[in-house]
């Protein structure tokens, strides 16, 4: 199967507008705060918190039809390319840019993301690296700062997704319709080194979380758990 991950493709657009977006609206309402801060063109880096598969669906739904073809979610190769069906779905319909979570010596794991930025696309990253505990911000991985450093002209935009962790938390199989809110931030300043950029990104995400509508959902210690 040829790899066509960076080709927009009509099939992907049809999927995103006719299936993914109505589904996101139905399941989450797809409320957006500060929609005007979303980039209209690439290259740009969007960094969002990650609690659910719904996150990707939701973020692909908040862009308008002209821009969404250029949005590339960065997703774990070990998970999304693990079997041919999921791989075809992830590459051709969702349009992911794969990333290896286990680094091999001498390999640049960011290469596919860089290729997307070179092509003027909007790269969507989840710096937590995995979905983690619902509605909590886990530790951020530094790859996003390295990517930002390599592309100083691409704005680094923080995005907080409120509520997706209850629609479909990690380990759950049935989604429950509950409202989600996407809060878009101002581009993060790139002064200083990578640690400073990461600290500012984390602070920006936390500030956006405080701006989002209140969430009274609770994760209890008796929550259904799975090993994933």
């Amino acid at each position: 199967m040829p790899s066509t991950a960076s080709e927009p493709g009509w099939l992907r657009l049809v999927f995103l507008r006719a299936v993914a977006r109505p589904l996101a609206l139905l399941m989450t309402g797809a409320d957006v705060m500060h929609r005007g801060r979303l980039p209209k063109s690439g290259p740009a880096i969007l960094a969002a918190n990650h609690n659910s598969h719904v996150d990707t669906l939701l973020l692909l739904s908040v862009f308008d039809a002209r821009t969404v073809g250029k949005v590339r979610p960065v997703a774990a190769a070990d998970y999304f390319l693990s079997n041919p069906v999921l791989s075809w779905f992830s590459r051709r319909l969702v349009g992911i840019t794969p990333i290896a979570r286990k680094v091999q010596r001498g390999e640049d794991v960011l290469a596919p993301a860089k290729a997307a930025l070179d092509a003027g696309e909007i790269v969507l990253v989840f710096p937590e690296g995995s979905r983690g505990q619902a509605e909590a911000l886990g530790p951020l991985k530094g790859g996003v700062a390295r990517l930002a450093e390599a592309y100083p002209d691409a704005p680094l935009i923080p995005v907080w997704i409120q509520g997706a962790g209850r629609v479909l938390p990690k380990g759950a199989h049935l989604p429950v319709p509950l409202t989600c809110c996407v809060v878009v931030g101002e581009p993060v300043s790139r002064e200083g080194g990578r640690p400073e950029v990461m600290a500012r990104l984390k602070a920006a995400l936390e500030a956006l979380r405080d701006e989002a509508p209140p969430l009274r959902w609770r994760e209890e210690e008796t929550a259904l758990e799975d090993g994933a």
Partner: peptide, 23 residues
Amino acid sequence: SFLALREFLSLAPLRREDRLVLL
């Protein structure tokens, strides 16, 4: 009804184990 119920349950102080009942 769907929009109203989704809104109502989204605001309520519920927990992860309630998801099945919500469905």
